[in-house]
Amino acid sequence: MNIDKRIADDLAANDVSFVTTVPCKQLAGVIEEIDQRSDIFHIPSNKEDEGMGLCAGAWMGGKRPAIIMQNTAIGVTINTLATLIQYYRMPLPMIISYRGELREPVACQVEMAVHTKALLAQMHIPTYHFHWQSDVEEFDNILKYTFMCNKPVAILTDANFWGGYGDQ
């Protein structure tokens, strides 16, 4: 299974047509896939809170948005999640690379990993953790759930899900 294509296909099938991204090594493949598709508009942002602003506007303009970012960005976006996305009750699927988990080679990544689920729980953000490739089966349902309840929803995708780090 091509996981990158599967994620992009599920986004498109759920009418998600506006995607903003800030890269992570783990997300390189899915970002490339989204960038080359004609049914999804890809707009890279410079910071994840900026990206959430773009998504909020796109949604008010009638498009279904999504953001693809690293879990370290939870530390960047708490205020935006609380005072924009949640306060105005907007849907936002967040496809998040969960760095600092099992098979992580970079020690510093663990420092935000240990806070990631606690921060999301504190924010009352529904959170799903993809550890096995087959967990992607849930993605379609998660997207439907997100646009049903108009909330930000986190999908944490760890290194094992993406197949590890290769040679690193």
């Binding site: 900026e50 602003g53 506007g57 008010m60 303009g61 205020n79 924009l84």
Partner: peptide, 22 residues
């Protein structure tokens, strides 16, 4: 009018997303 009640800094981004979407 869309009034921002919080989230300092994001008016330009919200407006850009909106302009791109419709």
């Amino acid at each position: 009018n869309f009034y921002m009640l919080g989230t300092m800094g994001l008016a330009s981004s919200i407006g850009l997303g909106l302009a791109l979407a419709q």
